[in-house]
Design a protein around this nucleic acid. Structure first.
Lengths: 195, 195
DNA sequence: CCTACCGATCGGTAGG
DNA sequence: CCTACCGATCGGTAGG
Protein backbone atom coordinates (compact mmCIF):
# COMPACT_ATOMS: atom_id res chain seq x y z
CA UNK A 1 0.00 0.00 0.00
CA UNK A 2 1.54 3.28 -1.03
CA UNK A 3 1.86 6.27 1.24
CA UNK A 4 -1.06 8.20 -0.27
CA UNK A 5 -3.35 5.26 0.42
CA UNK A 6 -2.03 4.78 3.95
CA UNK A 7 -2.67 8.44 4.70
CA UNK A 8 -6.23 8.18 3.44
CA UNK A 9 -6.95 5.04 5.46
CA UNK A 10 -5.55 6.62 8.60
CA UNK A 11 -7.50 9.81 8.02
CA UNK A 12 -10.78 7.92 7.61
CA UNK A 13 -10.19 6.02 10.80
CA UNK A 14 -9.35 9.16 12.78
CA UNK A 15 -12.16 11.27 11.30
CA UNK A 16 -14.64 8.55 12.28
CA UNK A 17 -13.25 8.24 15.79
CA UNK A 18 -12.50 11.86 16.70
CA UNK A 19 -14.48 13.85 14.15
CA UNK A 20 -13.04 15.81 11.20
CA UNK A 21 -12.46 18.97 13.18
CA UNK A 22 -11.25 17.01 16.17
CA UNK A 23 -8.49 15.48 14.06
CA UNK A 24 -5.43 17.57 13.22
CA UNK A 25 -3.03 16.97 10.38
CA UNK A 26 -0.48 16.35 13.11
CA UNK A 27 -2.68 13.52 14.48
CA UNK A 28 -2.75 11.86 11.07
CA UNK A 29 0.98 12.30 10.57
CA UNK A 30 1.84 11.01 14.05
CA UNK A 31 -0.15 7.83 13.49
CA UNK A 32 2.14 7.19 10.50
CA UNK A 33 5.36 8.34 12.19
CA UNK A 34 5.59 11.36 9.97
CA UNK A 35 5.55 15.13 10.46
CA UNK A 36 2.47 17.05 9.41
CA UNK A 37 4.05 19.06 6.56
CA UNK A 38 5.18 15.83 4.87
CA UNK A 39 1.55 14.88 4.31
CA UNK A 40 1.29 17.64 1.73
CA UNK A 41 3.48 15.68 -0.66
CA UNK A 42 0.49 13.32 -1.00
CA UNK A 43 -2.54 15.59 -0.79
CA UNK A 44 -3.67 19.13 -1.45
CA UNK A 45 -5.51 19.89 1.74
CA UNK A 46 -7.27 18.35 4.72
CA UNK A 47 -10.57 19.19 3.10
CA UNK A 48 -9.61 17.09 0.08
CA UNK A 49 -9.48 14.03 2.32
CA UNK A 50 -13.01 14.67 3.55
CA UNK A 51 -14.29 15.36 0.04
CA UNK A 52 -12.87 12.07 -1.27
CA UNK A 53 -14.53 10.10 1.52
CA UNK A 54 -18.00 11.57 1.30
CA UNK A 55 -18.24 11.81 -2.48
CA UNK A 56 -16.74 8.35 -2.93
CA UNK A 57 -19.24 6.85 -0.52
CA UNK A 58 -22.37 8.41 -1.99
CA UNK A 59 -21.19 7.47 -5.49
CA UNK A 60 -20.68 3.89 -4.41
CA UNK A 61 -24.06 3.79 -2.68
CA UNK A 62 -25.86 5.00 -5.78
CA UNK A 63 -23.96 2.62 -8.06
CA UNK A 64 -24.79 -0.33 -5.81
CA UNK A 65 -28.45 0.66 -5.78
CA UNK A 66 -28.56 0.91 -9.57
CA UNK A 67 -26.85 -2.44 -10.01
CA UNK A 68 -29.11 -4.13 -7.46
CA UNK A 69 -32.37 -2.82 -8.86
CA UNK A 70 -31.47 -3.45 -12.49
CA UNK A 71 -30.86 -7.11 -11.70
CA UNK A 72 -34.24 -7.47 -10.05
CA UNK A 73 -37.15 -9.29 -11.62
CA UNK A 74 -39.95 -7.37 -9.91
CA UNK A 75 -40.48 -4.60 -7.32
CA UNK A 76 -40.43 -6.96 -4.34
CA UNK A 77 -37.15 -8.44 -5.44
CA UNK A 78 -35.80 -4.97 -6.18
CA UNK A 79 -36.59 -3.70 -2.68
CA UNK A 80 -35.07 -6.79 -1.15
CA UNK A 81 -31.86 -6.36 -3.15
CA UNK A 82 -31.69 -2.59 -2.67
CA UNK A 83 -32.08 -2.95 1.08
CA UNK A 84 -29.40 -5.61 1.17
CA UNK A 85 -26.80 -3.51 -0.65
CA UNK A 86 -27.71 -0.44 1.41
CA UNK A 87 -27.17 -2.41 4.61
CA UNK A 88 -24.03 -4.08 3.31
CA UNK A 89 -22.31 -0.82 2.45
CA UNK A 90 -23.01 0.52 5.94
CA UNK A 91 -21.88 -2.70 7.63
CA UNK A 92 -18.68 -2.96 5.61
CA UNK A 93 -17.73 0.70 5.58
CA UNK A 94 -18.93 2.04 8.92
CA UNK A 95 -16.21 4.69 9.18
CA UNK A 96 -16.89 6.11 5.72
CA UNK A 97 -20.67 6.12 6.09
CA UNK A 98 -20.53 7.63 9.56
CA UNK A 99 -18.33 10.42 8.28
CA UNK A 100 -20.82 10.97 5.47
CA UNK A 101 -23.66 11.26 7.94
CA UNK A 102 -22.01 13.19 10.75
CA UNK A 103 -19.62 15.57 9.06
CA UNK A 104 -21.98 17.35 6.72
CA UNK A 105 -21.33 20.70 8.45
CA UNK A 106 -17.59 20.20 7.93
CA UNK A 107 -17.81 19.90 4.14
CA UNK A 108 -16.87 23.15 2.43
CA UNK A 109 -19.01 24.61 -0.31
CA UNK A 110 -19.61 23.99 -3.12
CA UNK A 111 -19.02 20.30 -2.38
CA UNK A 112 -21.53 20.20 0.47
CA UNK A 113 -24.38 21.29 -1.77
CA UNK A 114 -23.38 18.77 -4.42
CA UNK A 115 -23.13 16.03 -1.82
CA UNK A 116 -26.59 16.80 -0.42
CA UNK A 117 -27.98 16.82 -3.94
CA UNK A 118 -26.64 13.32 -4.56
CA UNK A 119 -28.09 12.10 -1.29
CA UNK A 120 -31.46 13.54 -2.26
CA UNK A 121 -31.26 11.77 -5.62
CA UNK A 122 -30.56 8.49 -3.89
CA UNK A 123 -33.57 8.99 -1.64
CA UNK A 124 -35.71 9.94 -4.64
CA UNK A 125 -34.67 6.80 -6.50
CA UNK A 126 -35.89 4.77 -3.53
CA UNK A 127 -39.20 6.62 -3.46
CA UNK A 128 -39.66 5.92 -7.18
CA UNK A 129 -38.86 2.26 -6.74
CA UNK A 130 -41.47 1.89 -4.02
CA UNK A 131 -44.03 3.86 -6.02
CA UNK A 132 -43.50 1.49 -8.94
CA UNK A 133 -44.24 -1.39 -6.60
CA UNK A 134 -47.40 0.29 -5.33
CA UNK A 135 -48.58 0.94 -8.88
CA UNK A 136 -47.97 -2.72 -9.70
CA UNK A 137 -50.02 -3.76 -6.69
CA UNK A 138 -47.05 -5.34 -4.92
CA UNK A 139 -47.16 -3.14 -1.81
CA UNK A 140 -49.79 -1.68 0.41
CA UNK A 141 -48.52 1.01 2.70
CA UNK A 142 -50.27 4.01 4.28
CA UNK A 143 -47.33 6.37 3.91
CA UNK A 144 -44.72 5.17 1.42
CA UNK A 145 -42.61 8.29 1.85
CA UNK A 146 -42.16 7.75 5.57
CA UNK A 147 -41.74 4.01 5.17
CA UNK A 148 -38.81 4.66 2.82
CA UNK A 149 -37.25 7.09 5.30
CA UNK A 150 -37.61 4.42 7.98
CA UNK A 151 -35.97 1.77 5.80
CA UNK A 152 -33.05 4.01 4.85
CA UNK A 153 -32.44 5.21 8.41
CA UNK A 154 -32.53 1.74 9.88
CA UNK A 155 -29.90 0.72 7.32
CA UNK A 156 -27.73 3.75 8.05
CA UNK A 157 -27.86 2.79 11.71
CA UNK A 158 -26.19 -0.54 10.97
CA UNK A 159 -22.90 1.37 10.80
CA UNK A 160 -23.36 2.23 14.48
CA UNK A 161 -23.79 -1.25 15.90
CA UNK A 162 -22.68 -3.92 13.43
CA UNK A 163 -19.73 -6.01 14.61
CA UNK A 164 -18.11 -8.60 12.33
CA UNK A 165 -17.98 -11.05 15.23
CA UNK A 166 -21.68 -10.69 16.08
CA UNK A 167 -24.29 -13.42 15.85
CA UNK A 168 -25.31 -12.57 12.28
CA UNK A 169 -22.99 -11.87 9.36
CA UNK A 170 -23.36 -8.74 7.26
CA UNK A 171 -24.98 -10.73 4.48
CA UNK A 172 -27.47 -12.24 6.92
CA UNK A 173 -28.33 -8.82 8.32
CA UNK A 174 -28.79 -7.53 4.78
CA UNK A 175 -31.23 -10.34 4.02
CA UNK A 176 -33.01 -9.92 7.34
CA UNK A 177 -33.44 -6.18 6.89
CA UNK A 178 -34.66 -6.82 3.35
CA UNK A 179 -37.50 -8.85 4.82
CA UNK A 180 -38.19 -6.19 7.44
CA UNK A 181 -38.38 -3.59 4.66
CA UNK A 182 -40.90 -5.68 2.73
CA UNK A 183 -43.00 -6.09 5.87
CA UNK A 184 -42.93 -2.35 6.40
CA UNK A 185 -44.18 -1.83 2.85
CA UNK A 186 -47.02 -4.30 3.37
CA UNK A 187 -45.73 -6.70 0.73
CA UNK A 188 -48.55 -8.75 -0.77
CA UNK A 189 -48.24 -12.47 -0.43
CA UNK A 190 -46.23 -13.96 -3.23
CA UNK A 191 -44.10 -11.00 -4.07
CA UNK A 192 -44.32 -11.07 -7.84
CA UNK A 193 -45.64 -7.60 -8.27
CA UNK A 194 -48.90 -8.93 -9.59
CA UNK A 195 -50.87 -9.37 -6.39
CA UNK B 1 -36.55 34.37 28.51
CA UNK B 2 -33.43 35.27 30.45
CA UNK B 3 -30.02 35.62 28.92
CA UNK B 4 -28.70 32.26 30.11
CA UNK B 5 -31.61 30.52 28.40
CA UNK B 6 -31.22 32.55 25.22
CA UNK B 7 -27.56 31.62 25.05
CA UNK B 8 -28.36 27.93 25.46
CA UNK B 9 -31.05 28.01 22.79
CA UNK B 10 -28.74 29.78 20.37
CA UNK B 11 -25.90 27.38 21.11
CA UNK B 12 -28.10 24.34 20.45
CA UNK B 13 -29.24 25.76 17.15
CA UNK B 14 -25.69 26.57 16.03
CA UNK B 15 -24.18 23.30 17.26
CA UNK B 16 -26.82 21.41 15.27
CA UNK B 17 -26.25 23.46 12.15
CA UNK B 18 -22.47 23.92 12.12
CA UNK B 19 -21.26 21.26 14.53
CA UNK B 20 -19.85 21.86 18.03
CA UNK B 21 -16.29 22.42 16.87
CA UNK B 22 -17.48 24.41 13.87
CA UNK B 23 -19.19 26.87 16.18
CA UNK B 24 -17.07 29.44 18.03
CA UNK B 25 -18.07 31.31 21.15
CA UNK B 26 -17.89 34.39 18.96
CA UNK B 27 -20.54 32.86 16.64
CA UNK B 28 -22.89 32.34 19.58
CA UNK B 29 -22.26 35.82 20.93
CA UNK B 30 -22.70 37.48 17.52
CA UNK B 31 -26.09 35.83 17.05
CA UNK B 32 -27.15 37.57 20.26
CA UNK B 33 -25.42 40.88 19.53
CA UNK B 34 -22.92 40.30 22.27
CA UNK B 35 -19.14 39.89 22.52
CA UNK B 36 -17.75 36.47 23.24
CA UNK B 37 -16.26 37.23 26.68
CA UNK B 38 -19.66 38.38 27.94
CA UNK B 39 -21.00 34.87 27.53
CA UNK B 40 -18.88 33.79 30.48
CA UNK B 41 -21.11 35.70 32.85
CA UNK B 42 -23.73 33.03 32.11
CA UNK B 43 -21.73 29.84 31.70
CA UNK B 44 -18.52 28.16 32.77
CA UNK B 45 -17.25 26.88 29.46
CA UNK B 46 -18.26 25.94 25.94
CA UNK B 47 -18.06 22.30 26.96
CA UNK B 48 -20.66 22.92 29.66
CA UNK B 49 -23.17 23.85 26.96
CA UNK B 50 -22.57 20.57 25.16
CA UNK B 51 -22.75 18.58 28.38
CA UNK B 52 -26.10 20.11 29.30
CA UNK B 53 -27.58 19.27 25.91
CA UNK B 54 -26.49 15.65 25.66
CA UNK B 55 -27.06 14.67 29.29
CA UNK B 56 -30.41 16.46 29.39
CA UNK B 57 -31.55 14.69 26.24
CA UNK B 58 -30.62 11.16 27.29
CA UNK B 59 -32.17 11.75 30.71
CA UNK B 60 -35.38 12.90 29.09
CA UNK B 61 -35.39 9.94 26.70
CA UNK B 62 -35.01 7.44 29.52
CA UNK B 63 -37.67 9.15 31.65
CA UNK B 64 -40.14 9.14 28.75
CA UNK B 65 -39.45 5.45 28.15
CA UNK B 66 -40.01 4.60 31.80
CA UNK B 67 -43.24 6.59 31.94
CA UNK B 68 -44.54 5.08 28.69
CA UNK B 69 -43.82 1.48 29.59
CA UNK B 70 -45.12 1.73 33.15
CA UNK B 71 -48.48 2.93 31.83
CA UNK B 72 -48.75 0.01 29.45
CA UNK B 73 -51.09 -2.90 29.99
CA UNK B 74 -49.07 -5.54 28.11
CA UNK B 75 -45.88 -5.88 26.04
CA UNK B 76 -47.53 -4.99 22.76
CA UNK B 77 -48.94 -1.82 24.23
CA UNK B 78 -45.61 -1.07 25.89
CA UNK B 79 -43.69 -1.33 22.60
CA UNK B 80 -46.25 0.83 20.88
CA UNK B 81 -46.00 3.52 23.55
CA UNK B 82 -42.22 3.31 23.86
CA UNK B 83 -41.80 3.68 20.10
CA UNK B 84 -44.16 6.65 20.07
CA UNK B 85 -42.29 8.57 22.77
CA UNK B 86 -38.93 7.69 21.19
CA UNK B 87 -40.12 9.08 17.86
CA UNK B 88 -41.78 12.10 19.46
CA UNK B 89 -38.65 13.19 21.27
CA UNK B 90 -36.65 13.01 18.04
CA UNK B 91 -39.34 14.84 16.03
CA UNK B 92 -39.76 17.61 18.61
CA UNK B 93 -36.13 18.08 19.53
CA UNK B 94 -34.21 17.38 16.34
CA UNK B 95 -31.35 19.75 17.18
CA UNK B 96 -30.75 18.26 20.62
CA UNK B 97 -30.98 14.65 19.46
CA UNK B 98 -28.76 15.27 16.45
CA UNK B 99 -26.14 16.82 18.69
CA UNK B 100 -26.40 13.79 20.96
CA UNK B 101 -25.83 11.46 18.03
CA UNK B 102 -23.21 13.38 16.07
CA UNK B 103 -21.07 15.09 18.65
CA UNK B 104 -20.03 12.11 20.73
CA UNK B 105 -16.34 12.67 19.85
CA UNK B 106 -16.63 16.27 21.04
CA UNK B 107 -17.75 15.38 24.56
CA UNK B 108 -14.86 15.57 27.02
CA UNK B 109 -14.19 12.78 29.47
CA UNK B 110 -15.44 11.73 31.92
CA UNK B 111 -18.82 12.89 30.63
CA UNK B 112 -18.53 11.01 27.36
CA UNK B 113 -18.17 7.66 29.10
CA UNK B 114 -21.11 8.43 31.39
CA UNK B 115 -23.21 9.52 28.42
CA UNK B 116 -22.44 6.33 26.50
CA UNK B 117 -23.28 4.30 29.59
CA UNK B 118 -26.71 5.91 29.79
CA UNK B 119 -27.32 5.27 26.12
CA UNK B 120 -26.41 1.63 26.61
CA UNK B 121 -28.82 1.40 29.51
CA UNK B 122 -31.59 2.81 27.38
CA UNK B 123 -30.86 0.25 24.69
CA UNK B 124 -30.75 -2.53 27.28
CA UNK B 125 -34.13 -1.48 28.68
CA UNK B 126 -35.56 -1.85 25.19
CA UNK B 127 -34.02 -5.29 24.78
CA UNK B 128 -35.53 -6.37 28.11
CA UNK B 129 -38.92 -5.05 27.16
CA UNK B 130 -38.93 -7.02 23.93
CA UNK B 131 -37.64 -10.14 25.68
CA UNK B 132 -40.53 -9.89 28.14
CA UNK B 133 -42.89 -9.81 25.19
CA UNK B 134 -41.24 -12.83 23.62
CA UNK B 135 -41.46 -14.75 26.90
CA UNK B 136 -45.14 -13.87 27.12
CA UNK B 137 -45.67 -15.16 23.59
CA UNK B 138 -46.61 -11.74 22.24
CA UNK B 139 -43.82 -11.52 19.64
CA UNK B 140 -42.14 -13.84 17.23
CA UNK B 141 -38.93 -12.49 15.80
CA UNK B 142 -35.81 -14.25 14.50
CA UNK B 143 -33.36 -11.75 15.93
CA UNK B 144 -34.85 -9.55 18.64
CA UNK B 145 -31.56 -7.79 19.27
CA UNK B 146 -31.25 -6.57 15.69
CA UNK B 147 -34.95 -5.78 15.47
CA UNK B 148 -34.57 -3.46 18.46
CA UNK B 149 -31.55 -1.77 16.87
CA UNK B 150 -33.61 -1.27 13.73
CA UNK B 151 -36.53 0.24 15.67
CA UNK B 152 -34.31 2.62 17.61
CA UNK B 153 -32.33 3.74 14.57
CA UNK B 154 -35.41 4.35 12.47
CA UNK B 155 -36.72 6.56 15.29
CA UNK B 156 -33.44 8.44 15.63
CA UNK B 157 -33.61 9.13 11.91
CA UNK B 158 -36.87 11.01 12.34
CA UNK B 159 -34.78 13.95 13.57
CA UNK B 160 -33.21 14.10 10.11
CA UNK B 161 -36.32 14.39 8.00
CA UNK B 162 -39.36 15.33 10.07
CA UNK B 163 -40.90 18.67 9.17
CA UNK B 164 -43.78 20.13 11.20
CA UNK B 165 -45.54 21.12 7.98
CA UNK B 166 -45.32 17.65 6.45
CA UNK B 167 -48.23 15.39 5.60
CA UNK B 168 -48.25 13.61 8.96
CA UNK B 169 -47.99 15.22 12.39
CA UNK B 170 -45.42 14.08 14.92
CA UNK B 171 -48.09 12.21 16.87
CA UNK B 172 -49.23 10.44 13.70
CA UNK B 173 -45.68 9.45 12.84
CA UNK B 174 -45.20 8.16 16.38
CA UNK B 175 -48.32 5.98 16.05
CA UNK B 176 -47.34 4.84 12.57
CA UNK B 177 -43.82 3.87 13.63
CA UNK B 178 -45.30 2.09 16.64
CA UNK B 179 -47.20 -0.15 14.24
CA UNK B 180 -44.09 -0.66 12.10
CA UNK B 181 -42.18 -1.69 15.21
CA UNK B 182 -44.83 -4.26 16.12
CA UNK B 183 -44.73 -5.65 12.59
CA UNK B 184 -40.97 -5.94 12.83
CA UNK B 185 -41.32 -7.89 16.06
CA UNK B 186 -43.83 -10.26 14.48
CA UNK B 187 -46.62 -9.22 16.84
CA UNK B 188 -49.15 -12.01 17.27
CA UNK B 189 -52.67 -11.22 16.27
CA UNK B 190 -54.55 -9.64 19.10
CA UNK B 191 -51.67 -8.10 20.91
CA UNK B 192 -52.55 -9.03 24.45
CA UNK B 193 -49.37 -10.77 25.29
CA UNK B 194 -51.19 -14.02 25.67
CA UNK B 195 -50.98 -15.44 22.16
C1' DC C 1 -21.44 43.80 29.29
C1' DC C 2 -17.13 45.68 27.27
C1' DT C 3 -11.95 46.16 25.54
C1' DA C 4 -7.58 44.33 25.63
C1' DC C 5 -5.13 40.52 25.65
C1' DC C 6 -3.06 35.64 26.45
C1' DG C 7 -1.12 31.01 25.26
C1' DA C 8 -2.21 27.24 22.44
C1' DT C 9 -3.25 25.17 18.32
C1' DC C 10 -4.46 25.02 13.67
C1' DG C 11 -3.73 24.26 8.36
C1' DG C 12 -0.50 25.20 5.36
C1' DT C 13 4.10 27.21 2.99
C1' DA C 14 9.16 27.93 2.16
C1' DG C 15 13.11 25.96 1.33
C1' DG C 16 16.10 22.40 1.32
C1' DC D 1 10.59 13.70 4.19
C1' DC D 2 12.33 17.28 7.38
C1' DT D 3 12.86 21.95 10.23
C1' DA D 4 11.45 26.46 10.69
C1' DC D 5 7.92 29.30 10.47
C1' DC D 6 3.50 32.07 9.23
C1' DG D 7 -1.07 34.28 9.89
C1' DA D 8 -5.45 33.14 11.64
C1' DT D 9 -8.42 31.60 15.01
C1' DC D 10 -9.62 29.55 19.17
C1' DG D 11 -11.44 29.34 24.28
C1' DG D 12 -10.89 31.81 28.00
C1' DT D 13 -9.07 35.61 31.63
C1' DA D 14 -8.11 40.29 33.60
C1' DG D 15 -9.88 44.22 34.86
C1' DG D 16 -13.12 47.55 34.83
Amino acid sequence: MDRATEIRKTAISLFAEQGYRGTSMKDIASALNMRAPSLYNHLESKQELLREVVMGTITRLRADFDAATSEASDPVDAVRRATAVHVLLHARHPDETRIGNREIPSIDEPVRTEYLRQRAEYSNAWQSLVQTGIDAGAFSVPSPKFAVFAILEMGIGVANWYRPDGELSDVEIGAYFGELALQMLGRHDEGFGGK
